[in-house]
């Protein structure tokens, strides 16, 4: 039975590999129909991926504002839209109640580790150009971003919606400075009843296109 599956899979894979191989035979390489299927210009470097780091502050509801750091990777689909994945982490301190009451802590140290990820769609709503001097100008984008993800905090994983606004200033074609303000919204039921929490994060970052 297993052999039959392998036979089937290998045949399917061979059939699939035969297609691109056939397109490479001499005489067929230069037919326009095969050329025009290429989406990007052959031999041209496409730079649609933007990867970088972000540093800033995260205001955790019912806790204090804490330093946060994260990594972000975006994929630019058109001049207006991009997909972006983010991961960030912070460390929460005592709640205000714990500080004032002086009682034993409500959560373990490990439970205070805050981390989140989200997958978002960004929209460059106001593309711009900054005129720094007579000879130098920089591209800029003001973008809106919205997405969903998860937050791992206080021992559980919470479904999180993220919405924000950001600004990207390209120093050249490959390096950009970014500023972001994002609200991470999730329902939490740690203190007995379910409540919607808003966790505002602002970050500054640097990204690279390649």
């Amino acid at each position: 039975m297993e052999n039959r599956h392998q036979h089937f899979l290998l045949t399917a894979l061979l059939a699939a590999t035969a297609l691109p191989a056939a397109a490479q035979e001499p005489g067929e390489v230069y037919t326009p129909s095969t050329e025009r299927r290429e989406i990007h210009t052959p031999g041209i470097d496409t730079e649609n991926v933007e990867v970088g780091v972000a540093l800033g502050m995260l205001a955790i509801q019912d806790f204090a504002s804490e330093p946060t750091y994260g990594v972000r990777a975006a994929w630019h689909l058109s001049e207006r839209f991009f997909f972006e994945g983010s991961y960030g982490a912070a460390k929460a301190d005592l709640t205000s109640y714990e500080k004032i009451s002086g009682g034993p802590p409500l959560f373990t140290d490990e439970e205070r580790d805050y981390s989140y990820y989200n997958l978002a769609v960004g929209w460059n709503v106001l593309p711009g150009e900054i005129y720094f001097s007579e000879k130098r100008s920089f591209k800029s984008d003001l973008y809106l971003i919205g997405g969903v993800g998860g937050t791992d905090f206080l021992g559980d994983n919470w479904f999180t919606a993220t919405a924000g606004i950001g600004y990207r200033l390209l120093l050249n074609d490959s390096i950009a400075l970014r500023m972001d303000v994002r609200d991470h919204i999730y329902d939490r039921e740690v203190f007995g009843e379910e409540e919607t929490t808003h966790n505002i994060e602002w970050t500054a970052g640097i990204t690279f296109f390649f």
Partner: peptide, 11 residues
């Protein structure tokens, strides 16, 4: 000379 491509634009 075609230098690089970003989304639908070629430098």
């Amino acid at each position: 000379e075609l230098l690089k491509q970003r989304t639908d634009w070629v430098k």
